[in-house]
Every structure is written in structure tokens, then in C-alpha cells.
């Protein structure tokens, strides 16, 4: 694509206390895109997001926002970002409006009118002068979104944004995000462990598991992609072969079962290679429309690492 990337992650890694939590994430996000970051709890989503906004430093790799490196050009890079990390923590002893004024004061481009507009956009106009300690989680979430979009960022990062919203609030929220992306030209990066949410809201999706991105694709495509399931005697070796020779990230589902998404790769040649390397293949089948199956497997079967 000829457009300049709004967000680019290159081989991002993070080790915390000897445990590698993010194991080399690569992502590119273009203007006006709504990008879903899907993964089970503990997959490394929040750690990745914290590295994007500079709250933690990557052990390896780099984050570039609108052409500025977060590590070397923090202020310029972060000028383009609005975000909510994990939960919308606000100053509880201030009112909603006082909270917004705090953040407005840190960015000269925000006018009084803009604050008013944003409050209306998120539907908080009736409660904005109450103390945040009296807010419900949903209202705090709205206030969180308000502070994130206050300075008209090019990149909006939302970590589990629909936590605490009721179904009506979720629909409202989806419409707001669409409007921000398609009318105001913001790129939106949404992390979630809810497949449906990503499916309904996003254009692109990356699926992350155990610190590795296992698939990045257009949401529509991924639903119709060919997923292949193998049963064989040595799944570790098979995963290694797929990664090294075919550049495919495969998943181990059960003891002897692995699954991978083949876009254009020839299945017969992969199978040939498996047999040549001495693997005993007992079963191989194609699965259709299996994003949901896959995701259920991701979120259920495994322990959190």
C-alpha cells in the first residue's frame, strides 16, 4: 500500500521478570482502518499496547507512530495518540468535566468548544459535572473515550473498550468508532477477547496467542479462509516445519492435533514434506468458517501463560 503507516510494530518483544510475554509482534496500521487485536486473556495484548504508548520499554524491536519512533521521539509520536489502557481510571475526586480540563490543559490544541462537542459525542452531557466517583463503569468508559479523542488523535488505541457497557451502549460505541474512523479519518486499534465485537467493528484483525501473532487478515477474508487441521504424531516438529519452511504460524489444539491457516500455500506439498520428514500423518481435513472454532479453542483449551 502506498499510504504511510499510522502505526508500525517491528519485531516487538518484551520480557518481564525472565518471562517472555510478547515474542516478536509485527503489525502495520493504515489511516482510517479499524484494527482488531484479538486474543485470550494473558496473550500479551495489554503488554503490546503499553509498549505502543511508551508505558513500558520493549526488550527488542521498535514502535513507530506516524513516522516517529516512540523510543526516540516520544513527544512527537505521542502527539498523534489517544488511548485507554486496560480500565478507564480517572481522578475520582474530580468531576468528569474537571478531568477533561486536566487533559485539555496538557494539549494546547483543545478548545472549550471541542470539549463540549466530545462530551456530547460520548453522551455524557447530563452527568459531566458530577464527581467521577459517582459514575458507573459504563460512564467511566465513556469519559475514557472522551479524553482519548479530545485532541483529535490520528491513532486511537482502545484496550478492552466495551467492558462495562450494556448492549445499547455497545451499539452506540460501535457507531461512534465507525464515525471516528470513516468521517474523521482516525485509525483505531481495538484490543478485545470477544470475537463478536471484533467481527462487528473491525476491518482488519490480528489474532495473538501466547505473545505471538498467529494470523493477520481482513476480517471478511478470515471468515472464509481455509483452515487445515492435521492429526500427526509429532506436532512440535510439524509446527517448526510450517514456521521455518512455509512461514505459517500453526497452533497446537489437542495432544496430536494442529491447525493452521493456508492462504495460497499448497496443501499437497506441505503434506509431502511432513511425510518426507518422517511424520506419521493420521488425519487431515479442511475446516471452513472456523474463526469462531479457532477462537474458542484459543480461549478455552489452554492455560494462561
Amino acid at each position: 500500500m502506498p499510504q504511510t503507516a499510522v502505526l508500525e510494530l517491528t519485531n516487538l518483544k518484551k520480557t518481564i521478570k525472565g518471562k517472555e510475554i510478547v515474542k516478536g509482534v509485527n503489525l502495520t496500521l493504515y489511516p482510517s482502518q479499524i484494527f482488531g487485536f484479538l486474543g485470550p486473556n494473558g496473550a500479551g495484548k495489554t503488554t503490546t499496547i503499553r509498549m505502543i504508548v511508551g508505558l513500558i520499554k520493549p526488550t527488542e524491536g521498535s514502535v513507530t507512530i506516524c513516522g516517529y519512533s516512540v523510543a526516540h521521539d516520544f513527544v512527537k509520536a505521542l502527539s498523534n495518540v489517544g488511548c485507554i489502557i486496560e480500565s478507564p481510571d480517572m481522578y475520582k475526586y474530580l468531576t468528569g468535566m474537571e478531568n477533561l480540563l486536566q487533559f485539555a490543559a496538557m494539549n494546547k490544541t483543545v478548545s472549550q468548544q471541542r470539549i463540549k462537542d466530545v462530551v456530547e459525542m460520548v453522551g455524557l452531557q447530563h452527568r459531566v459535572n458530577d464527581k467521577v466517583s459517582t459514575y458507573s463503569l459504563g460512564m467511566r468508559q465513556r469519559l475514557g473515550i472522551a479524553q482519548a479523542i479530545l485532541a483529535r488523535p490520528k491513532l486511537l488505541i482502545l484496550d478492552e473498550p466495551t467492558n462495562g457497557l450494556d448492549p445499547a451502549g455497545m451499539t452506540e460505541f460501535r457507531n461512534l468508532i465507525r464515525k471516528l474512523a470513516y468521517e474523521d479519518g482516525m485509525s483505531v486499534f481495538v484490543s478485545s477477547h470477544l470475537l463478536l465485537e471484533i467481527q462487528q467493528m473491525c476491518d482488519m484483525v490480528s489474532i495473538i496467542k501466547q505473545g505471538r501473532v498467529i494470523k493477520t487478515a481482513n476480517v471478511q477474508d478470515i471468515l472464509h479462509d481455509d483452515w487445515i487441521e492435521w492429526q500427526l504424531n509429532d506436532p512440535e516438529q510439524a509446527i517448526a516445519i510450517l514456521r521455518n519452511h512455509w512461514n505459517i504460524e500453526a497452533l497446537q489444539l489437542k495432544k496430536n492435533t494442529i491447525r493452521a491457516c493456508l492462504s495460497q500455500h499448497p496443501l499437497d506439498k506441505i503434506n509431502d514434506q511432513f511425510i518426507r520428514e518422517g511424520l506419521a500423518l493420521t488425519y487431515c481435513s479442511a475446516k471452513q468458517n472456523t474463526l469462531e472454532d479457532l477462537f474458542l479453542d484459543l480461549t478455552e483449551g489452554d492455560e494462561i501463560v
Binding site: L78, D89, M90, Y91, F103
Partner: peptide, 14 residues
């Protein structure tokens, strides 16, 4: 402890 430090440190202020 209130988590607001996150809001403070992701602004375009060093």
C-alpha cells in the same frame, strides 16, 4: 495506585 499515572504518561509530554 489509582491507575491515573497511565493517563498522565501517555500524553505528548516527556
Amino acid at each position: 495506585s489509582s491507575g491515573t499515572i497511565k493517563l498522565l504518561l501517555v500524553r505528548n509530554v516527556p
